[in-house]
Write a protein that binds this DNA or RNA. Sequence first.
DNA 1: TAAAAAATTTAGATTTACCTAAATTTATTT
DNA 2: AAATAAATTTAGGTAAATCTAAATTTTTTA
Lengths: 220, 220
Amino acid sequence: MKYSSSKENYIKAIFHLQRSSENVSTNALANALQTKPASVTDMLKKLKEQKILQYERYKGVRLTAEGKKIALLIIRKHRLWEYFLVEKLQFGWEEVHEIAEELEHISSKKLIDRLDDFLGNPRKDPHGDPIPDANGKMPVLQQISLDAIELNKPMEITGIGNQTPELMELLQRTNIKIGSKLEVKKKFSFDNSLEIKMRNAAPFIISQFLAKNLLVNDEE
Amino acid sequence: MKYSSSKENYIKAIFHLQRSSENVSTNALANALQTKPASVTDMLKKLKEQKILQYERYKGVRLTAEGKKIALLIIRKHRLWEYFLVEKLQFGWEEVHEIAEELEHISSKKLIDRLDDFLGNPRKDPHGDPIPDANGKMPVLQQISLDAIELNKPMEITGIGNQTPELMELLQRTNIKIGSKLEVKKKFSFDNSLEIKMRNAAPFIISQFLAKNLLVNDEE
DNA sequence: TAAAAAATTTAGATTTACCTAAATTTATTT
DNA sequence: AAATAAATTTAGGTAAATCTAAATTTTTTA
Ligand SMILES: [Mn+2]
Ligand SMILES: [Mn+2]
Ligand SMILES: [Mn+2]
Ligand SMILES: [Mn+2]
């Protein structure tokens, strides 16, 4: 089966949203897809027909097993293309998402499997997110929010939560990147801000909100 | 400006067709695009509105300068992606066209220019066709049909005319490839067939029709 | 628990890219 | 130059993916 780009975008958005909420609401989807709730309702009815999701009106949606399988393939394509753009074409990690948003809809399965091999079967994309394998299995990386770790323990940034341009902007300013090594030196109880120290740089303070959006590896 | 995949396919098809005929006919386009003449007429009216082509009803079409510029960019993308698939992902040159037919519609200009550099700015695609540069200039390769060359002069196959699966099949059987070195030993006036000799192989005979579809370099 | 507010769906349109069948125009034959 | 054939366009639809405005259902609040 082959699905339109529009349908694939819906399937992927539902997949991501259903990890943080039981059933995914019409409004949440409309917001994620930059569209109107009425349009979402229309599409949900079509996707239900195709058994890609379970949907009862006014009750929100969940993907079926089939739906999840499709979502994981799209995510695989998205992340492999992002990796290609950064590693082979020298793009900055903040500019690849939009292009991958188009490339993820190229249909050839053989293409993506060959690309995977060409790239050396990477396990994480440039944002630190795990890349599903050819069977749709996604490695579970034990990532933990920087906000929750012990003091003075060396850590590596392996991912970021909310991937908005606003966060990107702040990361550039503070020079924090995927792969940066750092440790938390102190937590200030006044506003829960954290003092962090990166290798070869003076210590500085970041907000709790930012810390919650920085993921570090637990072991490894 | 950004055009739909469908419009881009029309523009590219007109570009190719208008090299062999003054004005491109509705039927020729319908045939090339595997669609119906009535659909072509509809689309031509829209593309005329957008000043991409000159069209008067019952008289056929030609691209405007703007239309040609768009066509050359699409052809550039198509051929660079084909080169990538063959050279980096180990695809066979007969299986890349279909995938490139999708990849050519990815919109990022920066992506294609980076890809061009990554590939080492190739001048020909895997079928021997020239690749337009970032400004849309397409090198004119002096290619001449094998049917028209002198006897006993060493030549290299640099391109093929009609790129159908049928021709591909015959080429595989005869083991003729882009880059093959050969010379024409004799022409038979009975059916205009040619005896050719490839390096390290016994001479064999090919039809005039096949010879007309094999392009060789004139000088170089 | 009855209003009010929020979320969601339905109704009715629009745009794009197609289609078939019928009408029209152009080209080719007698 | 008619008549016939071929090419092309027009008329009238359809399906996908959107939208706005109005109706309905669910949730929250007073
Ligand atoms: Mn991304
Ligand atoms: Mn997308
Ligand atoms: Mn091609
Ligand atoms: Mn195409």
